[in-house]
Design a protein around this nucleic acid. Sequence first.
RNA 1: GUGACCGUAGCUCAGUUGGUUAGAGCGCCUGGUUGUGGUCCAGGAGGUCGCGGGUUCGAAUCCCGUCGGUCACCCCA
Length: 388
Amino acid sequence: MIEQVKGTNNIDGELAVKYNLIHNTFYKIFKSYGYEQVITPTLEHAELFKKSIGENSEIVTKQMYQFKDKAGRDIVLRPEGTSSLVRYHAENNKDFTKKYIYFGQMFRYENPQKNRYREFSQAGAEIIGNVDLYSEFQVINDSINFLKSLNLEFKLNINTIGSVKEREKYTKELYKYFRSNLKKLSKESQDKLENNTLRILDSNEKTDLKIINDAPTMYKFLSEESLEKFNSLLLLLDNKGIKYQKNERLVRGLDYYNDLTFEFISDQGVVVGGGGRYDKLSEILNIGKFQGIGVAFGVERIINQINKIETSNKYYLIGSNISKMINYSITLDSLNIPYDKPARLSKINSQFKEAKSKNYQYIINTDEDTIKNLRTNTTVKFSKKALS
RNA sequence: GUGACCGUAGCUCAGUUGGUUAGAGCGCCUGGUUGUGGUCCAGGAGGUCGCGGGUUCGAAUCCCGUCGGUCACCCCA
């Protein structure tokens, strides 16, 4: 047996129905707000992500599907979408402010578990160019409308991590603090000290809680200006009745974020989407000087959160005579009536069973020219009028 | 990257201390039965026991490796 590649998924049956629902709802909602669809390549130069996500990040150091192509280029299967959109913006719309959406497969070489796969889909929205408070508000607001359209229960967590410089200063202080308390930290947190100091704040370990609680807080290191920006967004959310949870420990993993960061968490505690502001990304990549704010949703994570969806087809065609079956199909097609039919002309018994198991309401029996209602167990003669 | 558990028919699983042609239920197919029908009866198809190596007279069963699955840490969507 040749098995599927580790961490990949076959999306079929019920899953495919949910996938399509998310895909269609995402495009419907965001396109209605004027976001433009961009399908960027799955393949990118490794350099793009090394510079954007950060040379020391786990994604770049351990998780990229990377290879040299036949001409010796360093190529990766994209691990995220924002960097590609920023590259696209610089190449095509540098002097404009644009709203973009994308939907597609991403790849990260991680050990798979629930809500984490090696090949997964992200749906993302970005506003790139000259970005302001209103841009921030609408990305959050439009995201909320998207999730609500899927009948998802979720909470918005929000934070500011200040400018890149402020964060550097804070990280240094934090490093000093944790270093002096190193022995009291869990092993996991000790490992994070050197490369990912900020992320210690996110630790779930009980042993870490007290030390984290006593750690210097981010907000003390932020400038008036940074706090002011953050507070005006919060005020706006308050005024518009958008509920949120201020979470001082919300630290996003990607290096390019500054100031605003946020996450959408399902009622089951799963992060279904997240995003933030990235004002320096274009400069880091050396492709311009513009800002951005974006959000990305994990499609598989949302699939795992939404409930069963009922199919809408009503009619199932059965029969044993190939010619009559085809004639009925022609009639139904001309009336634009959707219907299902057996893959082959098996036993009538089997066809009845199939219709029942697929939960159809009506059986059109082409052997007898009748329509049977499986819910009420009544049969009427077939006529165009009897179809509704 | 670390750790735990797992892999026998399409599905859920049985398989006794290693011992003949590897089983069951459900599902599937065929014939009949029913003929407001989906029931019931009979028969049938379907398995490189995830893959490779080793131990043994003999391996689904023991050992090693590998691939895959589930979950957690870590990471993040």
